[in-house]
Amino acid sequence: MDWEYFFELLLGGLTRGSIYALIALGYTMVYGIIELINFAHGEIYMIGAFTALIAANVLTMLGMNELAVLVLASVVAILYSAAYGFTVEKIAYKPLRQAPRLSPLISAIGMSIFLQNYVLLAQTSDFLPFPSLIPELEFMEPIAHIISSAEVIIILTTAVVMILLTLLIKYTRIGKAMRATAQDRSMAMLVGVNVNRVISTTFVIGSALAAVGGVLIASHIGMINFYIGFIAGIKAFTAAVLGGIGSIPGAVLGGMVLGWTESFATGYVSSDYEDVFAFALLVIILIFRPAGILGRSTTQKV
């Protein structure tokens, strides 16, 4: 067995998994609170990547140094994604809170298609090269052939973001309000939680996380176009379901499992069917264990 190749795949899977996890968090948080598969979430991630690309180019031309560009472009991307997430919720989901369940789902699909084509028409259908914003770290030199600096930074960033998010949900006021709303929306409303604000906040946080993922993956892979959100969205959703939708540690675990599955399957089996593995995993999980790895199966109330 070629151990070096194995570790390469292992770490590659971890990197992919981190990105999936970042996007999956948005799905999981939204689903936890309003039980909606936010189809447009992948598009928010794509818009984050596009905004970062545009900002980075403008800032570079203004003559800023690399680190400043990295920080500013990320901040712009995060703010914009959050704003898009907020707006999408207000337009496409909020009016449908009381509607039958199929309605917001169709609305979400429509929003996803709309945003994809919005970027396609306003920008381009071509792949754009994304500037490599993430710096090469010198101390990484000796192991650079196994794992790149960018991959290390992706994994570390994800880890830090997860910890921050967990703390936020556990200890802050808004975090508690979010958990209360997820448990029982009308009850939360009765005890004085501003449910609309909680839902908005959830979209904002989820979208911001997607933007982090967008910036990281784009500068790692170096190419983006308007369609990256669709595939990434479905995969991240797979990760969320895999771990147990609604559960935050589940989203991380699901991301990792999916990352590794893809990494090893393409590394050892065939790279032609890369996406098929992800979809097949999704289908299998939903059919045999719809509650996911960490999710509890609930009995439907009659």
């Binding site: 098929v276 979809f279 097949a280 999704l282 289908v283 719809p290």
Partner: peptide, 28 residues
């Protein structure tokens, strides 16, 4: 047959997955 036990939104995503799998198989 396998997907019909699923709830509405899961059904949507699984059928989407199946559709893509069939297309990817045809492609590859």
């Amino acid at each position: 047959f396998p997907v019909l036990r699923l709830r509405g939104d899961y059904l949507a995503i699984v059928t989407l997955g199946f559709g893509e799998i069939i297309r990817l198989i045809l492609e590859n």
